[in-house]
């Protein structure tokens, strides 16, 4: 190495400045590119009830236990049936008009659906979200024989909004997607927003 010492120092300095400039350019470029692709709105995860097939993954794949997915009831769609297949197991035949049957004759494994007599053969069904585990059994029953007024939604007061939703990965129907945080629910019936 015949170069004088200061030439070497200068060269090292130059390399360093060049690297810094390249780095600044790179980060700046990415920032500029991102500025064109950035949106103010945050995203949250939600499942589309129209695509949902009630496979049961929502209850088991969520990182929370119980799952952040709960059943939601669209009262406007509900038939207020006496023999509700979201409430009773299929082929259930009640002996008489009973307001609250025993646990074994309820479809919900955690008895999260409450039933209240309204008038005539009509009953109102409400969900106890603290008990609901999001298994979707009632959703399946209501969809098969009823109006489909029960459906699953992730409840954002519980959902921790993972960057990658564990249920979305496991969903066989590809029903999960990121939705703008301003419209965090994909509701059924009259409340439907796209």
């Amino acid at each position: 190495m015949s170069e004088p010492e200061n030439a070497k120092v200068k060269r090292r300095d130059l390399i360093r400045k060049g690297a810094l400039a390249t780095g600044l350019l790179g980060v700046g470029g990415t920032a500029a590119l991102l500025a064109t692709r950035a949106g103010k709105d945050r995203y949250v995860w939600q499942l589309d009830p129209e695509k949902c097939i009630q496979c049961g993954n929502c209850a088991t794949k969520c990182v929370l236990r119980p799952s952040a997915v709960k059943v939601v009831h669209a009262f406007a769609l509900c038939g207020y049936c006496d023999l509700c297949f979201g409430y009773f197991p299929p082929h259930f035949e009640p002996d008489s008009a009973i307001e609250e049957p025993a646990a074994e004759s309820q479809l919900c494994p955690t008895q999260a659906i409450n039933r209240k007599w309204v008038e005539g053969p009509h009953f109102e069904y409400t969900i106890d979200e603290d008990l609901c585990i999001g298994c979707g059994k009632c959703v399946k029953g209501c969809g098969n024989f009823g109006n489909g007024s029960l459906f699953l939604q992730t409840r954002h007061n519980r959902c921790v909004n993972c960057n990658e939703c564990a249920i979305a990965i496991a969903c066989p129907a590809q029903a999960w997607r990121r939705v703008p945080a301003g419209h965090p629910y994909l509701l059924k019936g009259e409340d439907r927003q796209t």
Partner: peptide
Amino acid sequence: QNVAMALADPGYAVPLSVAAFFL
């Protein structure tokens, strides 16, 4: 990953807070 997806997929806009976390 959010940044990569935003750059590749025109249907996804990266939220500002996430962009800040990256940059």
